[in-house]
């Protein structure tokens, strides 16, 4: 029987110390980890419950930004009046994810580090370099409709499933990390996640003795924010493609833009190429098309997911048109 020990952490530094031992993992809402444990994909020997740490607040920052505690629940963040007013894309992204019950349990930090939904990752009889390094990637040459079109490797074509992290990427969030010695560091969200390369089992830059304590949102750019999620059914499905966009326009010209895609890569995919193609250009469909082409220039389909390239382009164009039209 797979036994494990459990402790409830009472302060952040002790939590980090506790997780430093081999086989230990943090647990918060458990909405992903418990499933993976039941399916024999995660096999921790010790769980450090950090859900009750005093990291649930959403606070104003002196620069006009917000700090979201890593233990703030997805539903609380989505409903926060400051988030809804100043970071509506984040609120929209959160409520488009999972279900009400899951959002009530899921934490901000846990959402950032949730694992992929690749069915071969979930099938312990299939080869998966992410689950079992060196065992191959059954998704390549397999059924890969939901898989990555950008930044994938011959080792792994999985996608990151989060909606929240995609909005945070467009909002240029920083992740706040704490070490056991009490030192802290901040990492830009785009640097927090790693591409699969030949080590797809290492998904982010978290060190074994580090814990996410919060997410810092800089003051929002002026302009309209949108999060658009495309999927087969109206709810309770991971994104085939999603777009988070922040667009500032002045007299018909785009002055600044931030663009991130979900469902297309191993990480929330910030598209600087699309942003460059937008900045200084007229807010027209021709500009959006050019941005979409730029964003998907290096996209590669694997068969079943070929359609995602066109879908991502069209979703970006429409989202930009809506964002720019209303700013």
């Amino acid at each position: 029987m797979r036994s494990f020990t459990y402790e409830r952490a009472t302060d952040p530094r002790a939590a980090v110390a506790a997780v430093s031992r081999s086989g230990a993992k943090f647990i918060s809402g458990g909405t992903n980890l418990l499933d993976l444990m039941k399916l024999d994909i995660e096999d921790p020997s010790h769980l450090v419950d950090i859900s009750r740490l005093p990291l649930r607040d959403i606070e104003e920052l002196p620069d006009g930004g917000l700090r979201i505690g890593a233990q703030a629940r997805n539903s609380d963040v989505a409903a926060d009046a400051r988030v809804r007013t100043r970071y509506p894309a984040l609120s929209e992204a959160l409520v488009s994810g999972a279900s009400g019950q899951l959002r009530n349990k899921a934490s901000t930090g846990g959402n950032l580090v949730q694992r992929t939904r690749c069915p071969y990752f979930y099938d312990t009889a299939a080869g998966c370099n992410k689950r079992d390094p060196g065992s191959g990637c059954a998704a390549i040459g397999g059924f890969n409709r939901i898989h990555a079109i950008l930044g994938a490797s011959d080792s792994c074509i999985a996608t990151h499933p989060s909606d929240m992290a995609v909005a945070m990427t467009a909002l240029e969030a920083q992740i706040e990390l704490l070490r056991a010695d009490g030192s802290a560091r901040r990492v830009a969200i785009t640097d927090f996640y790693r591409l699969p390369g030949d080590t797809p089992h290492i998904e982010n830059v978290l060190e074994p003795d580090e814990m996410i304590t919060g997410v810092l949102l800089p003051p929002p750019l002026p302009g309209r924010q949108l999060y658009r999620k495309v999927r087969d059914r109206a709810s309770y499905e991971f994104a085939l493609v999603s777009v988070a966009a922040v667009v500032s326009t002045e007299r018909g010209t785009i002055s600044e833009a931030r663009v991130a895609f979900g469902g297309v890569a191993h990480k929330p995919w910030r598209s600087v190429e699309a942003e460059d193609a937008l900045t200084g250009r007229p807010a027209t469909m021709a500009t959006y098309r050019a941005a979409a082409e730029a964003a998907m220039r290096d996209a590669v389909g694997r068969g079943h997911n070929d359609f995602k390239i066109e879908l991502a382009k069209r979703t970006l164009c429409r989202t930009l048109a809506q964002a720019a039209g209303a700013s």
Partner: peptide, 30 residues
């Protein structure tokens, strides 16, 4: 009409999407 489809992996003969995350059926919002 719109959602249900179990996919066989032609290499193994296994159903790939063998859970409710991968085998879609209508939810209330549909």
């Amino acid at each position: 009409a719109l959602e249900e489809e179990a996919v066989v992996d032609p290499r193994s003969g296994a159903f790939v999407n063998r859970d409710f995350a991968g085998y879609l059926v209508p939810v209330h919002a549909d």
